[in-house]
């Protein structure tokens, strides 16, 4: 059997589940809108950054947030799959663990990208002037963020066996990664030590790339952003795949 067929089968399973679980899709669109409204409109009433309306400033960051949380939650859902033994069916099928990982990863990327695409389309409705050129250029950065974050999620999902560890990941990995990525505020005013830490955050490059092409407010060249994010993504892909291989052997 060709490996692609098997990867496609895993992806198809995830996609069919996604299509049937509308609650998950709806909630992942509503919460970024809430952020945009509460922070963008609320805080934006008294704050502007570099002469740009705050709602506009955080829009790329909120898209990055949607991608990140959807992807990581999706990945950690593997814990649930394992608890309910759904995963066993896949683990005894004649395909490698790496292919199981790739199929799952692509499934998560699809979910997250659909959500982000809906948000991008809503930009016009919300009065956020994002050109179709800007949106199109943002796509490669969005894709890299999603692949990177889904892999991180699947890695944690494969390594941890309880939801309690999920809380720890939330507090020590997800929130810091989000807060210090520049999604909500510019990073240049941070104290030096903290500013240098942000360079180890893959989301920093994703947010910068998106803000660069959408608003013309990038701090680093677009190509550099993509390159660094690409390296992070390769590392997390490798981490996720090897975690799946170990999980399969038990």
């Amino acid at each position: 059997m060709s490996e692609l067929e098997a990867i496609y089968a895993i992806w198809l399973r995830e996609f069919r589940v996604y299509l049937r679980e509308k609650e998950r899709a709806i909630s992942s669109i509503v919460s970024p809108l809430l952020w945009l409204f509460a922070f963008g409109t609320g805080l934006g009433a008294s704050v502007a950054i570099a002469g740009v309306n705050y709602q506009l400033f955080i829009f790329p960051g909120i898209i990055a947030m949607t991608l990140m949380f959807t992807s990581i939650f999706y990945g950690m859902y593997v814990i649930w799959d394992r608890k309910l033994d759904f995963l066993k069916e896949v683990l005894v099928a004649p395909l490698s663990r790496r292919d199981v990982f790739l199929g799952k990863m692509l499934g998560g990327v699809t979910d997250a990208m659909i959500q982000a695409a809906v948000l991008l389309m809503l930009a016009g409705v919300l009065g956020i002037p994002v050109t179709s050129y800007g949106a199109l250029m943002a796509l490669p950065a969005m894709l890299l963020i999603t692949v990177c974050m889904t892999s991180i999620g699947l890695f944690f999902g494969a390594v941890f066996s309880s939801f309690e560890s999920f809380q720890l990941v939330m507090q020590f990995v997800l929130w810091p990664m989000f807060f210090f990525s520049g999604a909500l505020f510019p990073l240049e005013n941070l104290p030096g030590w903290l500013a240098s830490l942000t360079y180890f955050d893959p989301l920093t490059y994703g947010v910068d790339a998106m803000r660069g092409v959408m608003l013309g407010m990038g701090k680093m060249p677009f190509e550099i952003d993509l390159l660094v994010l690409g390296v992070f993504t390769l590392v997390t892909l490798w981490m996720g795949a090897s975690a799946f291989e170990r999980m399969g052997k038990i």
Binding site: M1, R13, R16, V17, R20, D85
Partner: peptide
């Protein structure tokens, strides 16, 4: 022993995915 069919899918989808996994 423990059910491993996917309750979030239809009976047909469960079998369809399985068939694809086995090429």
């Amino acid at each position: 022993q423990d059910p491993t069919v996917d309750i979030r899918l239809t009976a047909y989808d469960n079998l369809d995915i399985h068939g694809r996994l086995y090429g």
